[in-house]
Amino acid sequence: MSTGRYVSDLDRGDVLGPVEYTLSPFVVREYCHAVELHQEYFQGSIDQIAPPTMIHLEKLRLYRHACPAGTGPTARVHIEYDATFHEAVRVGETLRVQGKVSERYAKRGREYVQLDIELRAASDNRLLMTYRDTVILAYRPQQTGA
């Protein structure tokens, strides 16, 4: 188990969470405002839903929970978003998020980490979204050899 310290420590099989929280209208509006999604079903107050891209912030929520010391020695670079939206995520709903590191591997001098995340309704365990997030742990490739 590599949780408990830095994100850069994470390794295959590590489980992050679960974490439960209630989705507020404020965070959905702020997120959508920032990324210029001005549709009323995101930024209004009636039947408000979250944009499926907000799942990316669930990764950060899990990192904070499982890796309280922070990022580690270098900045991560996000390289792939892969999400399946099973049903709308509604504002006001209590959500449960959990992640598992499915892969950690090296390619061309860079370390890659894949995190698989499930977002469910806490009330009845309905699966709302599945998400695979891929990052490299440092932009600058590691030196090889002496």
Binding site: F42, I49, P52, T53, H78, Y81, D82, T84, F85
Partner: peptide
């Protein structure tokens, strides 16, 4: 908003 309810999106940078 069909797209926000049931869909898939993959993007690679």
């Amino acid at each position: 908003q069909d797209f926000a309810r049931k869909a898939r999106l993959r993007t690679k940078y």
